[in-house]
Design a protein around this nucleic acid. Structure first.
Lengths: 193, 193
DNA sequence: TTTTTTCTTGATTGACGAGTCAATAAAGAA
DNA sequence: TTCTTTATTGACTCGTCAATCAAGAAAAAA
């Protein structure tokens, strides 16, 4: 059975299993064995490919971030002009895929991890910077010198509403959150003109 | 040494120690022994008074929430009229005491806990409802029927900026966050008039 | 075929932690 | 004083888990 080129397959399976396991428990308090079993292999193999629990978490975090980044980029590619692009960025944050239990759990736990793990901290900073600069770039032609402050508010509202909706026990989430952020955007545009 | 009426003293010491320990590690992944040692007693005593780790966490959460609630109430007592009250609520969220490492860590971890623990979930819901209704009550005379939606945006921006500032590696936090939320508030008031 | 490389796991180690319990000590009640 | 209630802990149980390792199995190379 042992074939060549298993490494990338195993790593991907472990990353997915990790996110699923985080989603199932809500915590980072999960065992390598459980992850490995979910991914269909022994825990020894997980250690073999990743070296340790922390590495697995970071890989899962990178993956979550990558997926989100890809969604944003995809939405941007289809939007023309700064206003439509801003709306696309906002919408991308509240896709139903972002409200799957595992994804919410992943984000919340990564926030926690970022407090104590410098690598996690860096990854989160990257996400925040990218969001911020995407917003500023498209706000500049519309609100000029206020771009930075407006971007800060929009980013804050995105994160805050995501947090609130993600934690809301009754699911039913993203639609009105999108509307709220769009309302903020339009108010800012109106105020600046 | 054993005197009577130790229970409330011990409980308070344990709650404080728990929050400090969460702040020191960033995680809920802490041991009852460490908490107890920090509070100057044996772990057995901690179990005696709280029954288990989870109970200790919930007590710590209740305490955090109570302190925050008291701050808001204090700020409200000194504010006259809906507009000043709204500003007081907003300011209360970004006090420097709310940006102490332990407090941030506590909130982040309580978010995580709320995913899997119904009691934590309930406590968080209480906080959210109280904030929301405080906002709505004071917004109603100013923006009428829009109060609900505006409150949602303000609450979202408060939580989101708190999250971002709390996670920001360079401290230096609350001042501009307050300004951002106040800016949103004033924009909403202007738009409604 | 023999050898080497890649893949894989069961078993083990070593450590740690939650919760229990029996026993001690002090204070107040009877 | 004797009894009861409250406070307190050290020692122990039982379980779990991260990480290691030696060894097996299969493909590819020689």
């Amino acid at each position: 059975m042992p074939k060549l080129g298993m490494e990338p397959i195993r790593r991907a399976a472990l990353v997915k299993a990790t996110i699923d396991e985080i989603g199932a428990t809500g915590t980072l308090d999960i065992t390598v064995s459980k992850i490995a079993k979910r991914a269909g292999m022994s825990s020894a193999l997980a250690h073999h490919y990743f070296g340790g629990k922390e590495q697995i978490f970071l890989a899962a975090m990178r993956h979550t971030l990558t997926v989100y980044g890809a969604e944003v980029r995809g939405a941007l590619a289809m939007a023309d002009g700064p206003k439509l692009r801003l709306e696309a960025i906002i919408r991308a944050g509240f896709t139903s895929s972002n409200f799957r239990r595992e994804v919410i759990a992943a984000w919340l736990n990564f926030y926690v991890l970022a407090q104590s793990n410098p690598q996690a901290q860096r990854l989160l900073t990257i996400y925040q910077r990218r969001l911020h600069s995407n917003l500023v770039f498209n706000l500049r032609p519309l609100v000029g010198g206020h771009a930075d402050a407006v971007a800060e508010r929009i980013a804050g509202l995105i994160d805050g509403l995501y947090l609130r909706r993600g934690l809301d026990p009754r699911g039913e989430a993203g639609v009105d959150a999108t509307a709220h952020v769009l309302a903020l955007l339009h108010a800012e545009l109106r105020a600046a003109s």
